[in-house]
Design a protein around this nucleic acid. Structure first.
Lengths: 328, 328
DNA sequence: CTGAAAGCGCTTACAG
DNA sequence: CTGAAAGCGCTTACAG
């Protein structure tokens, strides 16, 4: 509750100017006499001084905060990426503020304004909704980074993630190769560009859009379960289901188990993400592996590297991989 | 990339002083003439002005950032609490910075210093390691809040969470009531005060410490699995296992399944937390329900309410509940 | 190697 | 209802 000591307190106690104290704390100690260093160190220590990031940020017109906006922080894969990013940012001296948009455009825009208020060094969006405010910010600030889902057409900003279209395509082709029938694509919300890219890729892969049953769905087990119940009860068939993420796949599987269906004999299920839970909870799930742990380093690199020119298309495309296990 | 407009730019464009613009943005608009308000609003809008939190924080000697330190952000229950807290803080105009201590004392202390540097409004610790720096901060800043695990003896700071000792006690008594034998307590790391409180409670509940096999363990499925394998292979028995959290219980269960053991006939498993995954992944797990969603509001309330006196024991004890399902 | 001074973007007590 | 001015905690170009 006591007011924290300032640079002036340290200067006073060690008998030097604030300039010298500042140099000590901003890594310019090699231009200070050893004896001076020592007295500053001591004074700072005895006062328990930690430089104020606020003063520093104001002076440098730049903060060390990066804001990450996610549609749903309770989604495991989203959280995995967030953890990876937080850790990589810490490595370069930055803090991460995490905020939930709840898949809500107005909420996203509000948080975008907050991030602007914090003068965030960068804003990382995992699944952005295309709004005028978003576009304005991209154009004016140029410090937005899109992660995992590519931004909508016409937004020029760096993207870190896999090529969702290619991944969908690969799954579609795999379906053809294996001779699967009764295609179902449970795809993510249409307002995310990345969701539709996966879907479009898949449809291209199987080659016949009219034969793909497309179901839009939130990225949750609950939703996967409900879609499955409806489908399996209304018109039971040997479906081949491409799920927009692993959680949907878990839900679908649950419904299948309840109906005593065997996978992959009675039903084919393909997931997406290969989240950390699979190893323990769904080692049977065939899925697309997205390298969650590579997001952090890639994003950190993007933030550290200054923008080259006006056009900012410095995307980092991470590799994906089809993890073929039992379910497909 | 353009430098963001400042309060001065808005003042200039609308022909008023910065004081007036400031009043407009800090909710003192009722003391401004309607016409003035309108011109400020317009000017701000046309410039795309968002007040700088940095300038504001410096002036007010108070930031709107709350730092949350967690031992392991990939732990689901930890993440659930973090989500709840983030959402409640947003409701009162605060941002949350999340950081991982990785169960490492030095890392925790470093992050504590960072939080101090950010002049965090509050620091929330989910599982703190008892270090001199932590104690110093509690004494000097008085803005630390302990969540889910009570601070070590002698640290006077608010705590939000269940009474871990009582919860452990209730489980121990339940074991006695049901006549369970071969007690095993797989407890969390000893450097967390909350872990030992649960264990101590359990031991009190069964009433005979010498008959409890105590195994220290990280809070992971992997660790639960490994403990189980060792135990079940070395000396197979009908164990009654109290797991420090649900993840450990999942791991234990997995090992049991691999050995064709039936729960609860061949093995009794009791979890802790009742995390969000149980509903889908382990609806059979008997566990202690900790109300994750109540942490956010409780912590927000604590932050909003000014400290009463010198002694700060304003803890909020949340209710827990034994969720008896099949496994015990 | 060191210091005096200006200024980053705000808010608010004071005066009118 | 409004403005001039001081000051929050820093950093750095400049001068010595």
């Amino acid at each position: 509750m006591t007011k924290p000591p300032t640079i002036r307190d340290v200067a006073r106690l060690s008998g030097v100017s604030t300039a010298t104290v500042s140099r000590y704390f901003s890594g310019k100690a090699d231009a200070i006499a050893p004896r001076t260093i020592e007295s500053v160190r001591q004074a700072a220590k005895s006062l328990g001084y930690t430089p104020s990031e606020i003063g520093r940020s104001l002076r440098l017109a730049q903060s060390r905060v990066v804001v990450m906006l996610v549609p749903d922080a309770t989604n495991h894969f989203t959280a995995d990426i967030a953890v990876s990013v937080e850790s990589a940012l810490k490595g370069i001296g930055l803090s991460m503020v995490l905020a939930n948009t709840g898949e809500n455009a107005a909420q996203q825009d509000r948080l975008l304004a907050d991030a602007q208020g914090l003068r965030a060094r960068a804003i990382v969006l995992q699944g952005a909704i295309d709004t005028p405010r978003l576009r304005e910010l991209v154009a004016k600030q140029g410090n937005l980074i899109f992660a995992n889902r590519r931004p909508a057409q016409g937004i020029v900003a760096p993207y870190v993630g896999i090529d969702n279209f290619q991944a969908g395509l690969a799954v579609g082709r795999y379906f053809i190769e294996r001779g699967y029938e009764n295609w179902v694509a449970i795809h993510g919300p249409r307002h995310y560009f990345g969701s539709t890219a996966r879907l479009d890729g898949f449809v291209s892969g199987v080659g016949d859009a009219s034969r793909v049953l497309q179901l839009e769905s939130p990225y949750t087990m609950q939703a996967g379960y409900e879609h499955a119940c409806r489908l399996l009860d209304l018109e039971p068939k040997k479906y081949s289901v491409f799920c927009a993420n692993d959680m949907i796949a878990y839900g679908f599987y649950r419904a299948a188990m309840e109906r005593n269906l065997r996978v992959p004999d009675d039903l084919v299920i393909f997931g997406f993400d290969d989240n950390r839970l699979n190893e323990w909870l769904a080692p049977w799930l065939t899925t697309v592996k997205v390298p969650a742990l590579e997001f952090g380093p890639a994003i950190a690199k993007l933030i550290e590297t200054p923008k080259p020119g006006f056009e900012d298309g410095r995307s980092i495309i991470l590799p994906f991989e089809l993890k073929v296990r039992q379910s497909a």
